[in-house]
Amino acid sequence: MPDAAKVRIAFRVNGSEHIVHAWPMARLLDVLREELRLTGTKEGCGEGECGACAVLLDGALVNSCLVPALHADGASIITIEGVAQGEQLHAVQQAFLEHGGAQCGICTPGMVLAAVNLLEKCPNPTEADIRNGLAGNLCRCTGYMKIFESVVAACKQQR
């Protein structure tokens, strides 16, 4: 395909406007990682199972490996790089740090975004809410217990 077949995509990422030229069906994951060098978004499976590539797209948690770049045109996206305010960690990040929510760290960006999204939608989640809210994000290290604890701690912190 000639480069002319690429499309112009304008979107907002972590508060900054960006314009990229990409194949319409390029994965949002690759655009973020390769065009914008936002490598905090990870690829774990490439088929929407693991959630390592999760980002917030107009406030919804999506697997960026399944989102065509064209779909992001005009959208506002938050990646893991946009969660902290400068050096000030988000309550969820601080809780993951203190309560053992991150081990190897590869699921952490997606998991943190899933937790942030959960607490935005549901500020006082029950245990079942937390389990369901994170069920699209796989973690092989923690057995999830420390992640649940981190979410509970972040929730208390935010109150």
């Binding site: 905090g40 969660v83 993951f96 943190v112």
Partner: peptide, 21 residues
Amino acid sequence: QAVPRKEGRDKVTGRARYVDD
């Protein structure tokens, strides 16, 4: 004691660099 994970900050902020990064 449960001191904070040494490389934890890089991991929760997405700054940690894995090979594909």
